[in-house]
C-alpha cells in the first residue's frame, strides 16, 4: 500500500520523532519496537516502505531486512537503515542483505523526508 511506512526502532523517542515527521508530511505510519515485532505486524498489514534501526533486541535490523526481502508481499519495498557514522561495516552488511539506502543519525527532519521522497516518492 502506497503511503504507509513502517518505522522500526527500539527507542520510543526515535520512533516518535520519525513517525511525527512522516505523519506531518502526509504518510501513514506503523511503528514496531524491534525486528520480531515488525515481522509480526507485517503479516497483518501491507506497507510501502520500511525505516529500521540496526541494533535492536530480539531481531536486529539486518535480519529484518533479510526477512522482508524473502516475504513475497514486501519483497520490493524500499528499506532505509538508520545508522551511525561508526557503523560502516554494518551499513555494508545491510546493503548486502538488501537495504535500499541509509540515513546517518543524527538527522534533521528535512533530511529524512528527502530520503523518503527519493526512494518512496
Amino acid at each position: 500500500m502506497a503511503g504507509k511506512i513502517m518505522v522500526v526502532d527500539d527507542s520510543a523517542s526515535i520512533r516518535q520523532l520519525v513517525g511525527f515527521t512522516l505523519k506531518n508530511a502526509g504518510y501513514d505510519v506503523v511503528e514496531a519496537s524491534d525486528g520480531r515485532d515488525a515481522v509480526s505486524k507485517l503479516g497483518g498489514t501491507r506497507v510501502g516502505m520500511l525505516i529500521t534501526d540496526l541494533n535492536m533486541p530480539n531481531m536486529d535490523g539486518i535480519e529484518l531486512v533479510r526477512k522482508v526481502r524473502s516475504d513475497a508481499s514486501h519483497k520490493f519495498i524500499p528499506i532505509i537503515m538508520l545508522t551511525t557514522e561508526s557503523q560502516d561495516a554494518k551499513k555494508q552488511e545491510g546493503k548486502a542483505a538488501g537495504a535500499t539506502g541509509w540515513i546517518v543519525k543524527p538527522f534533521k527532519p528535512d533530511q529524512l523526508l528527502a530520503v523518503v521522497k527519493k526512494v518512496f516518492g
Binding site: 520490493f76 524500499p78 535500499t100 516518492g121
Partner: peptide
C-alpha cells in the same frame, strides 16, 4: 528491484 530501488523515482528526482 530486490533492493527496493525504483528507477522511476530516480528519473523523477
Amino acid at each position: 528491484f530486490l533492493k527496493g530501488v525504483n528507477p522511476l523515482l530516480l528519473m523523477a528526482e
